[in-house]
Design a protein around this nucleic acid. Structure first.
Lengths: 193, 193
DNA sequence: TTGAATTTTCAGAAATTGCTGAACATACGC
DNA sequence: GCGTATGTTCAGCAATTTCTGAAAATTCAA
């Protein structure tokens, strides 16, 4: 591997991380290299820098394209295809979230929905369905939230994340406000009464 | 595999999903089976139901314990260890988030921090560092947010998620309120002026 | 067109990961 | 303690995944 040490460390780390996710080591390393690169790189240069065969790099880039994690471009005076990652890390996060959702979450929701349509044939099956139902609800809520925040512009999303748990306070305040406005009396704990 | 059809479908699906994540097929299936089960199951029963060897199940359960995804208990009058998943799906989500963070995110942050301490030896390395810096910032923000919402009780977390993107409106309102209170004049677009 | 440069495909080799049975370890009732 | 039921480990076989080189396909300039 023909890289400055910090780059090499990052590339190796992402190779390992890649294999903990579904993605394989080669693909993780190619992505990491492109992410750090100053300029778009052609496949043969990637192969040379990482010490992989040209064909392996070709397959890895295909997979990254399928994930929409790299884009292809042509540089003037060079016939080769050059690859790069988006500049903006938030852009990358959004793409990752969409793709993982499409590949992992949606099929799971479909399976759960289909199963929940069936009539359970025994108490055991009824229990299994109840479990699936509660899983379905949690996943729906999480993905619904994701859909929602995906629509926010970067700036708002970042503001929201920075606010973190303090959002809960704002909500509390809003709830109390609602209670007052609708004149619904506050509930009291037994001790208070 | 000796299971009612809906259970079998769910178990197989989670096996596949497991292998898309770092976790392997066996482990995914064991987890899915326990998740749906009405009662805690002993290892030999798991092995029988899924058609795996007893030793394979033993290793799978060890891994699930390391992830804190199953708990072990003893039933009266039975010497065998029985395994179950938490009842509450939100509890499971929290554990998953913590464990993935510990295994995947924290080591990455450490690597980035260490690398960013070094002095770049070239323009190329300086660029790579700048990229790592922006990645570091995004990951920090995301994990900081996660830490924050992890502290909320379930009820509040759920309320927050249900609110989804509408939170942004509350924030906007709050910002405008801040502007008014601090008497900082609202910025106007060119067209308005 | 032609042919050189580049990319893709794919059969099979190499590496990795998963799985099993047998041996070993441990826990528990007696 | 003893013996049996239960749990763990691990060497090695099996299955899967990854990777390569060679060949085929594509692209593009002339």
């Amino acid at each position: 591997m023909d890289l400055p040490p910090a780059t090499a460390a990052f590339v190796l780390h992402f190779g390992e991380m890649g294999s903990r996710w579904g993605i394989n080591r080669t693909v993780g390393q190619i992505y990491a290299l492109l992410f750090l690169s100053e300029r778009p790189l052609p496949a043969d240069e990637i192969a040379q820098k990482l010490g992989f065969s040209r064909s392996n790099v070709s397959m890895g880039l295909k997979e990254l394209e399928a994930w929409r994690l790299v884009r292809l471009q042509h540089l003037p005076g060079d016939r080769r295809e050059h690859f790069s990652t988006p500049e903006d890390v938030w852009q990358i996060v959004r793409i990752l979230a969409e793709e993982r959702r499409k590949r992992e979450v949606d099929p799971t929701l479909t399976l759960l929905r289909d199963t929940l349509m069936q009539r359970p044939a025994s108490a055991e099956e009824a229990h299994a369905q109840a479990r699936m139902q509660s899983l379905y609800e949690v996943i729906s809520l999480l993905t619904g939230w994701m859909d929602d925040v995906q629509k926010l512009p970067d700036e708002r999303l970042i503001a929201l994340l920075k606010l973190g748990g303090r959002v809960a306070r704002v909500l509390e305040a809003t709830e109390r406000f609602q209670e007052i406005v609708t004149r619904k009396p506050r509930r009291r704990a037994a001790k208070e009464g």
